[in-house]
């Protein structure tokens, strides 16, 4: 249910994103999901990668500011209302979301929601007890090659 998300700090300027993507491409690292938080001066690229350790080492070596964060992955129905159900549950427990992004799993075509939650430990406890939430692990996301 926990995934290791890799974040990279970028300057908000043309070419910054390309540099990181090129490095990943050259090293044959597949990106499963990504989100880019952008502000007027900087961006934070957040990546879900099967080979996050390899990517981290390479990017650190290249001088990037890189951080590994625990994020939660939950599965929702890939149909109208699927996301809404999840947010209703979060709302029920007054859980605040730092950020959220989604993608479709290539393993089972389910919608996968990646979340970083405020007060993560307490939130996890509450959500685990609630059987409407389906946490998933890396095996549900990364296809065997």
């Amino acid at each position: 249910m926990n995934l290791n998300q890799l974040s990279v700090y970028l300057e908000n300027k043309p070419g910054a994103l390309k540099e990181v993507c090129q490095i990943l491409a050259e090293n044959n690292i597949d990106i499963s999901a990504l989100s880019l938080a952008d502000t007027s001066s900087f961006g934070i690229l957040r990546l879900i990668l099967k080979e996050w350790e390899k990517a981290r080492d390479i990017l650190l070596e290249k001088g990037f500011a890189v951080k590994i964060t625990d994020v939660f992955a939950v599965e929702v129905d890939n149909q109208p209302g699927g996301m809404c159900k999840l947010v209703e549950t979060l709302d029920k427990y007054q859980i605040n979301v730092d950020y959220i992004y989604a993608f479709v799993s290539t393993v089972n075509s389910k919608a996968v929601i990646i979340m970083r939650l405020d007060s993560a430990e307490k939130a996890l406890e509450l959500l685990k007890a609630d059987n409407t939430i389906k946490f998933i692990s890396k095996n549900d996301i990364f296809a065997e090659k």
Partner: peptide
């Protein structure tokens, strides 16, 4: 610095 970096805007 890498130490100052956070994934939160």
């Amino acid at each position: 610095t890498p130490e100052m970096f956070s994934d939160k805007v």
